[in-house]
Design a protein around this nucleic acid. Structure first.
Length: 850
RNA sequence: GGUCGAGUGGUGGAAUCGGUAGACACAACGGACUUAAAAUCCGUCGCCCGUAAAAAGGUGUGAGGGUUCAAGUCCCUCCUCGACCA
């Protein structure tokens, strides 16, 4: 009977408590002490603290970052590795309304649960730096940074069409709306013009684009950001309108096709529409404009949908040949992109071609090179200009330049750069968010509140919904809060919008550096020491928006000389998602695994016996396939959870969860345990000796091989799975050894410690060491131990493996060739045929071509 | 529809600069131990052919073609899946 087996449930809570009590992972805030060592800042994206608690995706993010933090710490770095809560936001507010609780109470409970769950994983956070974006001591500085944006003219009010959800009484972002419904509740969403705060992120478009080159990010991710910013170069072209003084401007990336423009289109929202529409067409145009307003941008621009539009009865004048071209109104042109008007070239643009075909508008070929006649299909490729006056015979690139030069000289247009990126809609009509530090004077002027009065705290209100007259929930606050006396004695009304959920996460990585500063958002010297973040890791769902918003704020802070780096996140990785089997019936209804049984290899529902489809999908509550990290810890311990998450594949790969795989790493940990502890007695294993590690050269060599590989694989982050493989190989070898040097074992425990900190610490302690192995020095490998006297040379004939030869490491090419030719098996395949060529790859192989 | 990424045993995945395909695990199977089971330990484990058992051989990284002494890796065409954008 084993009386003293590996028992993670006993050792893990003990060491977690010790680490916390002795503040093992606390980093000093004293800049003089910090300067004595190099720094490493590793950050996992902080969680949104919903009531659902920690899920496997969080663990898949926080475990690898923790391994890296442990590793760098042991290598002698000061490591910034903090954790906090993204706590403002709509889900919490909705939950609070449902349960009739204050969102602050809900948040407090949720964050406590999160912290408890995270701590059970044994992550080495410096908890003294914990932040919560919904606490006044934090959002005071979010407001403070907003004022810096405001002062620089980067925040403004505008009437913009927004996604308005009447049921929720709030504006939603485009990401929250799909098919005209709020993604979470399926409540219908309509388009509405509203007075909203906007942030001028477009002013930074070029830098946000260019500075991507400075970053060590995966190329695909940079590409996504570039695409989102969407820079296109072309020209603005001004069109006159026949029988009118009005003109309108279009943006085009294809000025070379101007001669092919056979109609123009104004967006339904374009201010000129009502001005120029011919009285005969007014009724049809008005009706069309009204209908278009409620469609989403996606509905309007989708290539698959039928093109619609109406003719205004008005004509534009072609800038080159004064030909009249009809002006239409169509909803595939958006007011929010470019100028809200286009010149349509059906011969060389897919949408224009479809539209022209539908409405019988002429299609003119101006670039030669299409495979089909221009009436059948548009040609968007490169070619030679035709039917284009002074452009005839030119290639597209030359024609663009010549046309732009001509437009500029004639005063009819100009070179122009256009971005797809829009300004950022920055206000919400909700409660649970940061109030704006602004107020409105009676005459309509907006004034910023002085820094000294921050934070503007959220007032208590009786209901978290808009007022009857459509004002945001904060307008329900009492007069004492709503009225504010300014330094000059005048009285103003507070802004009652709040900031969106993104605001708090735009700068939290800076607050961690100096989390309790009451004088400033952070100390400048600390910022200069720690920034930039060396590795930022999070889910791919944040690849665009969060990262773009945070980069934007950071650049504003940089311009205000508040931070020292152009970019916040030097390194970045997206961890892969965890997949799990899900079960669905023909109607699309999901079933929990415990409701399913296997029948002849096919899944069926236990009660109804209906056949089910089995598929690998991302773990999520709605798919009924979630495995809770805390359940895994209950059964196997945190070290097994950590190892398993890393062992199933590269950190960045999406991999399926398999319960059996956890058993595998659990067995590995048991083998590690048995290397040190005799399970019968609970004492140290009798195999352990005080002899030097070198007394077992074979194991000593395997150890050094392991040191080398674990160091390299951990450093590269994405190879932590093979680091664990090598540790397994070492443990398998050590298990078979008759005796085991404590020296060897202790070196191994260093390697294991970042990955499985609890067991490493416990065994370290049992071996008589004091203190924390997590604070010990990372071992280095001795290259001379790894070199060996003989090497295995692969002998190939015509590229096919025929034998393996053991040869002295210093054998010359000539000697290798002789040995290979003398080999019996090799000879059998040469069979006296003439040798045409011999290739020798040093220390690796020889290939004989016959 | 476009852009990017990926397809390797029954499964998750290894494989440096093009140089031993399948490391390490899981599952499965066989054996030892046990009254029995679990646990543990030892062994087998791509496919084909072959054998009493081996050895030897052939073939094999989604499909087809190419470059090379040598291709999972490089190039071309196609298929499938995923992510992002429209």
């Amino acid at each position: 009977m084993e009386n003293h087996p590996y028992a993670p449930a006993e050792i893990e809570p003990y060491w977690q408590a010790e680490w916390q009590k002795k503040e093992a992972f606390k980093v000093p805030n004293d800049i003089e002490i910090l300067k004595t060592k190099p720094k490493f800042y590793v950050l996992g994206m902080f969680p949104y603290t919903s009531g659902a608690g920690l899920h496997m995706g969080h663990a898949k993010n926080y475990v690898p970052t923790d391994v890296l933090a442990n590793f760098r710490r042991m290598q002698g770095y000061h490591v910034m590795h903090p954790m906090g809560w993204d706590a403002f936001g709509l889900p919490t507010e909705r939950y609070a309304v449902r349960e009739n609780e204050h969102p602050a109470h809900v948040t407090k409970r949720n964050t406590e649960t999160f912290q408890q769950q995270i701590q059970r994983i044994g992550l080495s956070y410096d908890w003294s730096r914990k932040i919560d974006t919904s606490l006044p001591e934090y959002y005071r500085w979010t407001q403070w940074i907003f004022l810096r944006l405001y002062e620089n003219g980067l925040a403004y009010l505008a009437d913009v069409p927004v996604n308005w959800c009447p049921a929720l009484g709030t504006v939603l972002s485009n990401e929250e709306v799909k098919d005209g419904k709020y993604v979470e509740t399926e409540d219908p969403v309509e388009r509405r013009l509203m007075h909203q705060w906007m942030l001028k992120i477009t002013a930074y478009a070029e830098r946000l684009l260019e500075d991507l080159d400075l970053l060590d990010w995966p190329e695909g991710l940079k590409e996504m950001q570039r695409h989102w910013i969407g820079k296109s170069e072309g020209a603005d072209i001004t069109f006159k309108i026949r029988d009118s003084k009005e003109v309108f401007t279009v943006f085009t990336t294809r000025p070379d096709t101007l001669f092919g423009a056979t109609y123009c289109v104004l967006a339904p929202e374009h201010p000129l529409v009502s001005e120029i529409t011919h009285p005969d067409a007014a009724a049809a145009v008005n009706a069309y404009v009204k209908a278009a307003v409620n469609k989403s941008d996606l509905q309007r621009t989708d290539l698959a949908t039928e093109k619609t539009g109406v003719f205004t009865g008005a004509y534009a004048i072609h800038p080159c040949n004064d030909a009249p071209i009809p002006i239409w109104v169509a909803d595939y042109v958006l007011m929010t992109y470019g100028t809200g008007a286009i010149m349509a070239v059906p011969g060389h643009d897919e949408r224009d071609h479809e539209f022209a075909s539908t409405f019988g508008i002429p299609i003119v070929e101006v670039i030669k090179g299409g495979e089909k006649p221009i009436e059948e299909a548009p040609f968007e490729g490169d070619g030679v200009c035709v039917n284009s006056g002074f452009l005839n015979g030119l290639q597209v690139a030359e024609a663009k330049e010549k046309m732009i030069a001509w437009l500029e000289s004639e005063g009819k247009g100009a070179r122009q750069v256009q971005y797809r990126l829009r300004d950022w809609l920055f206000s919400r009509q909700r409660y649970w968010g940061e109030p704006f530090p602004l107020a409105h004077l009676e005459d309509g002027t907006i004034v910023q509140l002085p820094d000294e009065v921050l934070p503007v705290e959220l007032p208590p209100i009786d209901a978290y919904k808009p007022t009857e007259d459509g004002k945001p929930p904060l307008a329900r606050a009492d007069a004492e809060w709503l009225k504010v006396t300014l330094p000059d004695g005048s009285v103003a009304t507070r802004e009652t919008n709040i900031m969106p959920q993104w605001a708090g996460s735009c700068w939290y990585y800076l607050r961690f550096l100096d989390a309790h500063n009451t004088e400033a958002p952070f100390d400048t010297a600390l910022e200069r020491y720690w920034m930039p973040v060396d590795l930022y890791m999070g889910g791919a769902e944040h690849a665009v928006l969060h990262l773009l918003y945070a980069r934007f704020w950071h650049k504003v802070l940089y311009d205000a000389k508040l931070v020292s780096t152009q970019e916040p996140f030097q390194g970045l990785l997206n961890q892969g998602t965890i997949l799990a089997e899900s079960y669905q019936d023909a109607a699309g209804k999901y079933y929990y695994p415990h409701e399913v049984e296997q029948n002849d290899g096919k899944a069926v529902a236990k009660t109804s016996r209906v056949p089910l489809q089995t598929q690998m999908e991302k773990m999520s509550k709605s798919r009924f396939n979630v495995i809770n990290p805390n359940d895994v810890i209950d059964n196997y311990g945190a070290d097994a959870l950590r190892l398993y998450l890393l062992f199933i594949g590269p950190v960045t790969a999406s991999t399926p969860w398999q319960d059996a795989g956890v058993e595998g790493v659990y067995r590995f940990l048991q083998r590690v345990w048995r290397l040190v502890i005799d399970e019968d007695s609970g004492e140290l294993s009798e195999k352990l000796t005080d002899a030097a590690g070198t007394t077992d050269p074979e194991l000593w060599r395997e150890l050094h091989k392991t040191v080398k590989q674990v160091t390299e694989d951990t450093e590269s982050i994405d190879k932590m799975n093979t680091a664990i493989s090598q540790m397994m190989i070492f443990v398998n070898t050590a298990t078979q050894a008759k005796s085991l040097s404590k020296e060897t074992l202790k070196i191994f425990l260093h390697l294991l410690s970042p990955y499985a900190p609890h067991i490493a610490q416990e065994l370290w302690h049992r071996l008589g060491e004091t203190g924390f192995i997590a604070q010990a020095q990372w071992p280095t490998h001795d290259a001379s131990v790894l070199t060996s006297a003989t090497v295995t040379i692969i002998a190939q004939v015509n590229g096919k493996l025929r034998n393996r030869l053991q040869l002295p490491a210093e054998a010359t090419d000539k000697e290798i060739e002789e040995a290979a030719l003398a080999d019996e098996r090799v000879q059998r395949f040469i069979e006296g045929k003439p040798i045409r060529k011999v290739i020798v790859v040093p220390n690796r192989l020889i290939n004989i071509v016959v």
